[in-house]
Design a binder for these strands. Structure first.
Lengths: 213, 213
DNA sequence: GGAGGTTCAGTGATAAAGTCACACTCGGAT
DNA sequence: ATCCGAGTGTGACTTTATCACTGAACCTCC
């Protein structure tokens, strides 16, 4: 039985009733859930998997804003749903993902009837605002070399030792240019913290050790 | 009768009943509504005035995230209210401001009973997310000289020709250092777009013309 | 009105980051 | 084997950030 924890607080019959009309969708990596400008059809709940949300600004550059993983709510969609405006960002699946789409009427109904559903939505919103505020601070004030190391470290702590990612993609992650990433990675290679290959970054030495801890 | 448009959809008796228990508070410029780390006591609704919300990052630098004006809802507070975490930002009054504070129980009650109240909250959240996403893009990819001109232009279009603001404060607005602002302003002065004085920036020439249009 | 202190602004030197242009190289595909 | 495109390396230059310091404007207190 596919589920999202926001339904856990509903009674069993209520839950069955709610989930009756909606079906789980599966998405492969690379699939685009929504694009900038598109209109929102409902509220996506991620059951499992991973989705990155990124935007491309007026400047033509892109930056990853945040990620959704298992049990997440696509908060961004709520705003679009309410105001009727199109998405400002796009969502790209990174790992095989299962999600359900809550249509507007059901969303309204749940908001009306379930205090816990409301709480879940509000909490999710709060977290997202926090994420974005931290991102602003990060982008505005942190050095790129530190941000890059932190990013790699975060991956290392998930147990990944060899990352399959291009410098260009890393540039989008951190909101900078490919050349900047290339130079910083070369510098890290000189410091024996990574080994580089085409499309791959192997974490070694301190970067890897710390990641395990 | 002080009011916030989010109450407009309530029936007159309902509205009277709701507003009975809460009283309008007045704040002078400079007053701090909340600080980073403090806990949220309720949901502030701005009746009139102006409040800026800014955060100071781990780096020790500050940046203005957004502003609240008449009829705004302090969306940030909802997240804090729901999760119980402290504020990550601080709110500073800029103009004489009137606000009401909705205590948690009343907030919960309105969320349960009024679809329009829910809609208003959700819309407000959506706008805030949008604001922050645009800010990320702006900070990450736009040139500082353009951002500065846009900021000045936005003030000009509100009819202000002489701004009372220090370079330091402008640095916080745009998330950069005072020296950077000083140099860019000097450059604008050379281009006859502003006249500078201690604590003042007078908009002239194109910058002013465009502002009026 | 001056002395002294504080806030604000200007500027040079240097480092970090972004931009532009172009060369090279690795891995398929034909 | 050759070709081609995606990925990477790098020099030259611009923009922005940081550090250190100077000087100017304003305030307060005699």
């Amino acid at each position: 039985m596919p589920a999202h924890s926001i339904f856990d607080t509903l009674s069993d019959t209520r839950k069955r009733e709610t989930l009756a009309g909606i079906n789980v969708m599966r998405f492969p990596p690379g699939q685009v859930l929504f694009r900038a400008g598109e209109h929102c059809q409902g509220l996506p709940l991620v059951i499992k998997g991973g989705v990155k949300v990124q935007m491309t600004g007026a400047s033509g550059h892109s930056i990853v804003l945040y990620r959704m993983t298992a049990d997440d709510i696509c908060t961004l969609s709520i705003g679009c749903l309410m105001t009727g405006r199109g998405y400002r960002a796009e969502a790209v699946v990174e790992e095989d993902t299962e999600a359900v789409m809550i249509p507007r009427p059901l969303f309204d109904q749940l908001m009306e009837q379930s205090p816990d559903f409301r709480l879940g939505i509000m909490e999710s919103y709060g977290r997202r605002l926090d994420d974005l505020m931290l991102l602003v601070e990060e982008v505005a004030f942190h050095r790129m070399d530190e941000r890059l190391e932190e990013w790699l470290l975060a991956r290392a702590s998930q147990g990944q030792k060899v990352l399959s990612i291009t410098h260009q993609e890393l540039g989008v992650e951190l909101g900078t240019a490919r050349e900047v990433i290339s130079r910083l990675l070369k510098e890290l290679e000189r410091k024996q913290r990574v080994r580089l290959a085409r499309g791959k970054i192997e974490l070694t030495g301190l970067l890897c050790q710390q990641g395990v801890a």
